[in-house]
């Protein structure tokens, strides 16, 4: 099938290898990947800050741009939740409500797409390391993705998955929250890093680069050896 890829702004600029990994994986599975360069952001930062009108201004472009897509895959649970759960909210009563709902129905977070839509868990990947997995909250609670990333990781050769204490607790990123209330965000992140470090893992994996950006920032400041990595980057190790 033809899969339309949505690469959010921060992945484009800060973590392009996540997007590249997704392309490699989907193409390996024999699908055609399509990418509309003009779609930059889902509008979540504005939405989460209460600026729903401004968020909609951004979202309209996304809804229009993906109108003809068969399925849309996005390597972020957070942006996925924005489109699936919150677009219907901000387009309530808007002329593009139908189009927004239709997009909401065909968008998948990356791990969800592999496991639930394609029924694939083994990609033939090999990644010799001990890793621990952090669920992004939006993926976990808005999209109900908990097992999918773990199912995929378990099939990776030579990889050991160890769960951390308080595995479902938030890392403290939270979008603009991270800079509006940096003291709380940092304290939450420190607790998360401590749990991850306790496992003795080499890598901290997530399906959300935004969580990882925050956690890596804390880890780097403390000069910790633990490295963050996106799920797709591990799965693309074949």
């Amino acid at each position: 099938m033809t899969i339309s890829l949505f690469i959010p702004c921060f992945i484009d600029q800060l973590f392009p290898s996540v997007g590249i990994s997704v392309v490699r994986i989907l193409e390996k599975l024999g699908h055609k990947v399509d990418f509309d360069e003009s779609l930059v952001c889902c509008g979540q930062p504005a939405f989460n800050t209460g600026c729903w009108n401004e968020a909609r201004d951004v979202a309209i472009r996304v809804v229009d741009g993906l109108k003809n897509a068969e399925v849309v895959v996005i390597p972020s649970g957070s942006c996925g939740a924005m489109i699936r759960v919150f677009y219907p909210e901000i387009f309530k009563g808007h002329p593009k409500q139908e189009a927004a709902l239709s997009l909401a129905h065909k968008i998948y977070e990356f791990s969800e797409f592999l496991v639930d839509r394609l029924g694939v868990v083994d990609l033939g990947s090999r990644f010799p390391a001990k890793v621990t997995f952090h669920n992004g909250c939006h993926g976990l609670r808005e999209l109900r993705l908990k097992q999918q990333p773990r199912q995929l990781l378990r099939q990776v050769k030579e990889l050991t998955l160890v769960e951390m204490d308080d595995q479902t607790s938030c890392c403290g990123f939270g979008g603009t929250f991270a800079v509006k209330f940096p003291m709380i965000s940092t304290a939450m992140g420190e607790a998360k890093c401590a749990s991850a470090l306790e496992t003795g893992a080499d890598f901290l994996v997530s399906n959300d680069s935004s969580c990882l950006m925050h956690l890596q920032g804390l880890l780097s400041r403390k000069k910790e050896k633990l490295k963050s990595i996106h799920l797709a980057e591990i799965l693309a190790s074949f």
Partner: peptide
Amino acid sequence: AWTASREAPVIAKESF
């Protein structure tokens, strides 16, 4: 607000 406790992420050489 970000960098007091966290390293800033680095913009990649080549974007997606």
